[in-house]
C-alpha cells in the first residue's frame, strides 16, 4: 500500500508519461511512466514535427540502476488515412548509467510503431540498451492493443481499455508481464492506470504544452 501511495505521489509531483514521442512544432511534453519494472520521466521539446530532443531519467527498481540521458526521437514515417494514422519512430539515447556509485556510459536504440483509429489502438516498442560494462545490457519489448468503448468529440474525456504485454529476457523478475490498463485522455492531458500480472501498479502521465 505504501509503494502504491508513493507511486501516486511521485506521478503527481512530476506530472506525466507515454504516448507519441514527438509533439507539435514548438511544443514541450512531459512524460512520466511508473511501470512494473521501472519509473522514468522524459521531458522533450519538438523543434519540428519529425523530431524531438529531451532529457530522460530512468530508475530500475529491482537492481537500483539509474539512467540519466539525452534522448532524440525521430519520426521515420507517418501514414495518413481519413480515420486512422500510423507512425514509425526511431529513438536513441545516451548518457550515464549508475549502480551503487559505479558509473558507465550507456546507449539506447529504440524502434517503435503505432497504428490507431478513433476506436482501435495498437503499438509495439523494442529497446536495446548497452553500456560499456555490466550495468545496463538488456533488451525490452512492449506491445499494446486497446479499444475505445465510445467515441468522443474534441475536448471530451476519452476512455481507452488496453492490454500491455512486456517482455524483458534479462530481467531478474517475471520475463513476461501482462498489464490491463485504463487510459483517460482529455485535450493535452493523458493518464493511464493499470495493475500488472506481477502485482505492480502502472501509473503513467503525459502533459503537453
Amino acid at each position: 500500500m505504501y509503494r502504491i501511495f508513493l507511486s501516486v505521489v511521485f506521478s503527481f509531483i512530476f506530472t506525466s508519461v507515454l504516448a507519441r514521442p514527438i509533439s507539435y512544432t514548438g511544443g514541450t511534453t512531459i512524460v512520466q511512466h511508473n511501470g512494473p519494472i521501472k519509473n522514468n520521466i522524459h521531458i522533450h521539446y519538438t523543434p519540428y514535427y519529425t523530431y524531438s530532443i529531451g532529457y530522460i531519467l530512468e530508475h530500475y527498481r529491482n537492481n537500483n540502476v539509474n539512467l540519466n540521458g539525452i534522448q532524440i526521437n525521430y519520426l521515420i514515417k507517418r501514414w495518413h488515412y481519413m480515420h486512422a494514422q500510423g507512425n514509425l519512430y526511431f529513438k536513441t539515447a545516451f548518457g550515464d548509467a549508475e549502480q551503487s556509485n559505479e558509473h558507465e556510459i550507456y546507449g539506447l536504440i529504440n524502434l517503435a510503431g503505432d497504428y490507431e483509429t478513433e476506436s482501435i489502438f495498437t503499438s509495439y516498442d523494442a529497446k536495446l540498451y548497452r553500456s560499456n560494462g555490466n550495468i545496463m545490457n538488456q533488451f525490452q519489448q512492449i506491445g499494446r492493443i486497446g479499444f475505445a468503448p465510445y467515441i468522443g468529440a474534441y475536448g471530451d474525456l476519452h476512455t481507452w481499455l488496453m492490454l500491455e504485454l512486456s517482455h524483458q529476457p534479462n530481467y531478474s523478475g517475471d520475463n513476461l508481464i501482462l498489464t490491463p490498463l485504463v487510459r483517460l485522455f482529455k485535450g493535452t492531458r493523458l493518464v493511464e492506470l493499470g495493475y500488472s500480472s506481477d502485482h505492480q501498479l502502472l501509473l503513467n502521465w503525459v502533459l503537453r504544452f
Binding site: 504516448a19 507519441r20 509533439s23 507539435y24 511544443g27 507517418r78 501514414w79 495518413h80 488515412y81 481519413m82 480515420h83 486512422a84 494514422q85 490507431e116 483509429t117 478513433e118 474534441y154 475536448g155 476519452h158 485522455f185 482529455k186 485535450g187 493535452t188 493523458l190 503537453r208
Partner: peptide, 12 residues
Amino acid sequence: VQGMVCDFCAST
C-alpha cells in the same frame, strides 16, 4: 485534415 484521430492531433 486526414489522419486527425485523437485529441493530441486536434490540439496540434
